[in-house]
Design a protein around this nucleic acid. Structure first.
Lengths: 230, 230
DNA sequence: CAAAGATAGTGTATTTTTTACACTATACAA
DNA sequence: TTGTATAGTGTAAAAAATACACTATCTTTG
């Protein structure tokens, strides 16, 4: 039923309107040590890797159809043999010795869609800023870094990332999102020029409400953006 | 010793000075049907995925230290259940029913380094032009397409691909290589301008010999090219 | 040894893209 | 009415990409 050799791990990015966060889970380790990890699970016999990742996210958040992007397979035999991980493996895995190859995915979530709560998965689930991610189980730090690198790469070429925003958003929110992902400030005028020219968004006849300053126009994602090669 | 659930498959690109080729293997199927496939193998317990791919290439070509780049994990449960593949699986795999997830790599070879010959691997090993690749076993056509897409992507950003050329080469050879990989013609002057500006190559004090026209200057790869982000 | 054949090698003008930069407009609150 | 906070806008300069055609040099052949 469960394949003992193959797992998926998910790097779930969330955006709270300000900074970019990643979803971490806390597992109670034997001896009360705190163990942080990315959500992941062994793959079932009759599901594809993509489906396995969807399932992990569903079990974790209750959300379906989350945007997912594969970002690498990690298969060093030693990735599940670090001393820091032995106790946990022995407590929770049927076959603690098994060689496990993991396929990593990153997922994008609107923060508004998910307020972390404990699940079947873990003692605790919480958002953590992508800067200064703490030490994680197994090779999850390497997986996280690669996911962020690939997210940035995708972002440069496609209008990916709107999955992190509400349906209607202002250009300033979009800019803040880009700044959070790239970790650098962008010029307002140049940013808008580019977004408009590439037709990533469409203006709505609607404005922001309940703000204490000039309300900004709202936009929505243009589902028909021409897909750039590469 | 062998992990029954995880394999690696290699898309080996070779360049013969003219067109881009991929290495295919021909397996004698039961009933004399011809089966074409990418070289690949199940992963051993004590080797990493990368090492497994290196081993496959070594068994196939005798070459060590070949440039390899991971280009995706393929794990649909049905990828090893197509009727066209059943007979072969039953003849050659200890456990023909096993769910096999494969991790794909692409490799780059100088044609001069490898003249295909049969190996332990297959009845026959041969170069095939990357255009109009025939029907392959399992999901190998999808793996091939993805590998080519990712090779092109890499090529646009890094000075990858010189692994396909001899150590000393002319700018025209380099241009022909780029044209073969992208499948489109490039402007000679603009191509040279760009290559020189980005310092991908260094000029040598040496010229081509034995050609029936003005001999071209030879160049070598600049190992110290600044690595672009992304 | 002259001419033909073949590819090497080179520069400039035009267009497009990217970058840098600062002020006015509008809504709400006090 | 004024203050405060963010929205929204244009232009000039620099850099990068594109289009384009002729001369140079080597070998072979007549």
């Amino acid at each position: 039923m469960v394949n003992p050799n193959v797992s998926v791990d998910c790097v779930v990015f969330g955006f709270d309107g300000d900074g970019l966060n990643v979803l971490l889970i806390e597992q109670k380790d034997v001896g009360q040590r705190i163990r942080l990890a990315l959500p992941g699970d062994l793959v079932l016999d009759e599901e594809s890797l993509h489906e396995a990742a969807q399932r992990v996210l569903w079990e974790l958040t209750g959300l379906e159809g989350v945007y997912l992007h594969q970002c690498g397979a990690f298969g060093d035999p030693n990735r599940v043999r670090d001393v820091k991980d032995l106790a946990w493996l022995q407590s929770y895995r049927e076959n603690p010795q098994a060689r496990v190859i993991t396929v990593a995915y990153f997922a994008l979530l609107k923060s508004e869609d998910f307020n972390p709560h404990a699940s079947s998965f873990a003692e605790r689930v919480f958002w953590h800023p992508v800067y200064q991610v703490p030490e994680l189980a197994f090779d999850h730090n390497a997986i996280f870094s690669q996911a962020l690198r690939i997210l940035r790469k995708e972002m440069r070429h496609r209008q990916v990332g709107h999955e992190l925003l509400p349906e209607k958003f202002t250009l300033s929110q979009l800019q803040t999102l880009h700044e959070a992902i790239f970790g650098e400030m962008l010029d307002k005028r140049n940013f808008r020029k580019k977004i408009i020219k590439e037709m990533w968004v469409l203006p709505l006849e609607e404005k922001q409400k309940g703000v204490v300053h000039k309300p900004a126009r709202l936009y929505e994602i243009n589902a028909n953006t021409p897909v750039l090669e590469e």
